[in-house]
Amino acid sequence: MSLDWMAWTFPTAVFFISIVVILAAMTIWQVLWPSMERRGFLPITTTPGDRLFIGLLGSAYIHLAWIGLTGLTLWIAFGLAILWLVVVMIWG
């Protein structure tokens, strides 16, 4: 069984591994210390899992907006996305 056709590159591998690690970490966290739904600045009640999803989706849009609207390095967008993710996770 060969998976050459998947055309892996180093950056995308890192990307997917980090996603898997984040999901695994979230699962372990929630198994050990389950947390309840609560209401932050977002208009809906959320669990940490919901906030992670919103954070990641938002990050994707931040990156796209950065690529589409500016010509600057993507690392700034990456920084902004991390900031957004942290803000949503803590106060969302």
Binding site: W5, M6, A7, T9, P11, T12, F16
Partner: peptide, 9 residues
């Protein structure tokens, strides 16, 4: 995953 990989090369 494959589609993501295609998109960067």
């Amino acid at each position: 995953m494959t589609v993501v990989n295609y998109s960067v090369q």
